[in-house]
Simulated scan of single mutants.
Amino acid sequence: MDKRKDLINAYKQRKILGGVFKVTNTVNGRYLLDSAADIHARQNSFNFSVSTNNPFDYKMRADWQASGAAAFTFEVLDTLEKKETQSQEQFIEDLKFLEENQAEKLDSTLRY
């Protein structure tokens, strides 16, 4: 029983790492810019999309089908660790701010 409680406590105390990411179509340079409260989960989701050849996001469906999954790359642009005192809403707000900051650095005409 103690092992189970220890595992539950370890899970609750894990560091939550959010971030801003970019999925780029290497064929035409178009990209998807987004943020996620769990950046590792989004990376895993992208990897699964590539392995199953299912579009990662509906916005890029046509390009994904035309160019194939291998034409897309996933890049983490910025990360943010959730503070213990921060609500989920505040955390997401901070991530959206980071996303807007990254968007200013990129060519908006190429964004999905």
Score class of each variant (00 low, 15 high):
86 Q>P: 00
27 V>W: 05
68 G>R: 03
87 S>R: 10
32 L>M: 08
79 T>Y: 04
85 T>D: 15
90 Q>C: 01
112 Y>M: 02
73 T>N: 11
6 D>L: 11
66 A>T: 15
106 L>N: 02
60 M>H: 02
49 S>Q: 06
82 K>A: 14
36 A>S: 15
28 N>H: 01
53 N>C: 09
108 S>E: 08
41 A>K: 11
105 K>F: 00
109 T>Q: 13
89 E>D: 13
7 L>S: 03
50 V>N: 06
21 F>P: 00
17 L>G: 01
20 V>W: 11
98 L>K: 08
87 S>I: 12
56 F>H: 07
95 L>A: 02
84 E>G: 11
11 Y>L: 09
85 T>W: 15
9 N>M: 07
96 K>N: 09
7 L>H: 01
67 S>T: 05
79 T>N: 06
26 T>E: 00
54 N>I: 14
16 I>A: 10
46 F>C: 03
68 G>H: 04
81 E>L: 09
94 D>I: 05
13 Q>S: 13
72 F>M: 00
12 K>D: 09
91 F>C: 12
1 M>A: 09
37 A>V: 11
51 S>A: 13
56 F>I: 03
109 T>R: 13
34 D>R: 09
96 K>Q: 08
23 V>H: 04
81 E>R: 15
14 R>M: 10
42 R>W: 03
35 S>P: 00
6 D>T: 05
88 Q>N: 06
3 K>F: 13
32 L>P: 01
60 M>G: 13
11 Y>W: 09
45 S>G: 07
6 D>S: 08
42 R>G: 05
46 F>W: 08
27 V>C: 06
94 D>S: 11
1 M>K: 07
24 T>P: 00
29 G>E: 05
48 F>T: 05
40 H>N: 14
101 N>C: 08
10 A>S: 08
19 G>I: 10
13 Q>G: 12
76 V>M: 06
51 S>P: 03
109 T>F: 15
4 R>C: 05
80 L>T: 06
102 Q>H: 01
8 I>V: 14
39 I>K: 04
77 L>Q: 12
8 I>R: 05
17 L>V: 14
43 Q>L: 08
62 A>C: 03
31 Y>A: 06
89 E>Q: 12
79 T>Q: 10
30 R>H: 12
29 G>D: 03
82 K>N: 12
111 R>E: 04
25 N>D: 15
72 F>N: 02
90 Q>Y: 04
93 E>S: 14
81 E>S: 06
39 I>C: 03
41 A>Y: 00
1 M>E: 10
93 E>L: 12
110 L>N: 01
65 Q>D: 15
93 E>H: 11
21 F>D: 02
60 M>A: 14
56 F>N: 03
111 R>P: 00
82 K>Y: 12
72 F>K: 00
76 V>Q: 09
30 R>E: 13
73 T>G: 08
83 K>G: 09
30 R>A: 06
68 G>A: 06
60 M>E: 11
14 R>F: 10
4 R>H: 09
